[in-house]
Design a binder for these strands. Structure first.
Length: 318
DNA sequence: ACGATTATTGCGTTCTT
DNA sequence: AAGAAAACAATAATCGT
C-alpha cells in the first residue's frame, strides 16, 4: 500500500519541535513557545496568538511524491489524511426533483463509497487509534499541533509493528503522552491515564516500548515547567509563583532524575511559607496536585532548602 | 538455603485471512 | 469468524553463591 511507504520517510516529532522561535510573554515575561499554529507562554500558559490561517503555500510539491498538489493540508489525524470524499445527502429542493429510482441509486452509491474507505486491510485499526488520539488530545486540551504530531507518531508506531499484543488504546495514550513530553508540556502520565480507557501501568508499558524501539529523544523535564500548572490549581498569588519559579530554576541542575512535579511542589511549599509561618497550602494539597505523596513534598523541600541556603547563608532557615 | 535469573503458562489483545 | 502472532503478568524452574 502506498500510504505506509510514504510515511516511512516522514520527519519525526522532534525534528518539528526544534524549529520553534522563542520570545517573551507580555504577561509574565516568560518564554514563548511557538508551535505551528499557536504561541503559548511556558510560564503561565497564556496563549499569545492563535493563527488559524495556514500561512503555507496554497499548493505544495513538497509532499515527497507530489501525489497531492492542491487542497487542504494533509491531516495525519485522519486515517486517510482527509483525502477521502463523501457523497452528500441532498435534503433540500433537489430532493423533490429526483425520482425515487435516482434516490435509491444514490443511496446505494453512498453506501458503497463509504465502505470502500476501509477496504485496504488494517486501516480500520488505524482509524480506531487515530480516533482515540483525537479524543484524548481534546480531553487533555492539547493544541491541534500536538494532536497532529501524536497522530504522526502513532503512524510510525504502527508501521514498526509495535502495537500487536499491546493495545490500540494504550498505544494511542502513549503517543499523546510522548508527544506532550517532546513538546516540553507539563503533562503527567496520570493526567492521560484519567481520560484514557486503559490503566496507567499499561500506558507506561506502551510508552517504554515506544522509547526503546523508536529511540525518540524526549527532553528531560524541568521542575520549573510544573510550577505554573501547580500554582494555578492551588490558586497562588503572583509573588508566590515568582518565588517558587526562582527556587525551581535554582535547584534544577541538582535534581535531575527526581520527579519534576514533586520538586516543583516542594518549591511551591517553600514559597508559600514552608513550616515556619503557617503555610497557605498543605503538603498533601500540593502532593495531590502533583500526583505525589505528601512525604515526597516534605523530603524534597528539605533538599531544596539545603541547596538554596548554601548559596546565600545570610538567610538562616532552620 | 536463598536470591536472582530464566522458562512456562495462561490471558487479553491485534491483525490476517 | 477463526486462528496466528506478539506482549505481559504470574508462577515455576534453574542457577550461582
Amino acid at each position: 500500500m502506498a500510504t505506509t511507504e510514504h510515511h516511512r520517510d516522514q520527519p519525526s516529532t522532534q525534528d518539528r519541535t526544534q524549529s520553534r522561535e522563542l520570545s517573551t510573554c507580555p504577561e509574565c515575561t516568560g518564554r514563548i513557545r511557538r508551535d505551528s499554529d499557536e504561541q503559548t507562554c511556558e510560564e503561565c500558559g497564556l496563549i499569545v496568538e492563535t493563527a488559524r490561517i495556514d500561512h503555507g503555500p496554497e499548493w505544495r510539491n513538497t509532499d515527497e511524491d507530489s501525489s497531492k498538489r492542491t487542497g487542504s493540508p494533509r491531516m495525519p489525524s485522519l486515517h486517510d489524511h482527509g483525502l477521502s470524499t463523501k457523497i452528500g445527502h441532498h435534503t433540500t429542493t433537489e430532493q423533490s426533483a429526483l425520482s425515487t429510482a435516482t434516490r435509491r441509486k444514490f443511496a446505494r452509491l453512498r453506501k458503497w463509497h463509504r465502505q470502500s474507505h476501509f477496504q485496504d486491510t488494517g486501516s480500520r485499526y488505524l482509524a480506531d487509534g487515530l480516533g482515540e488520539i483525537r479524543r484524548l488530545a481534546s480531553a487533555l486540551e492539547q493544541s491541534q499541533s500536538v494532536r497532529e504530531q501524536a497522530c504522526r507518531l502513532y503512524r510510525t508506531i504502527r508501521s514498526e509493528n509495535l502495537i500487536r499484543g499491546r493495545s490500540i488504546e494504550g498505544m494511542a495514550a502513549a503517543s499523546v503522552y510522548a508527544t506532550c513530553r517532546c513538546n516540553r508540556s507539563p503533562m503527567l502520565i496520570e493526567d492521560v491515564a484519567t481520560v484514557a480507557r486503559v490503566s496507567k501501568q499499561r500506558i507506561q508499558r506502551c510508552y517504554d516500548a515506544l522509547n526503546a524501539e523508536l529511540g525518540l529523544e524526549v527532553p528531560p523535564r524541568a521542575p520549573a515547567a510544573f510550577v505554573p500548572r501547580l500554582a494555578s490549581t492551588l490558586d497562588l498569588n503572583d509573588a508566590q509563583r515568582r518565588e517558587a519559579r526562582q527556587l525551581a530554576d535554582a535547584v534544577q541542575p541538582a535534581v535531575v532524575g527526581k520527579h519534576p512535579a514533586g520538586v516543583a511542589g516542594a518549591c511551591i511549599y517553600i514559597a508559600c511559607g514552608g513550616t515556619r509561618t503557617r503555610s497557605s497550602v498543605t503538603q498533601s494539597e500540593i502532593g495531590e496536585a502533583a500526583t505525589v505523596c505528601a512525604k515526597t513534598i516534605r523530603d524534597h523541600a528539605r533538599t531544596v532548602r539545603k541547596l538554596t541556603t548554601e548559596e546565600k547563608p545570610i538567610k538562616s532557615d532552620e
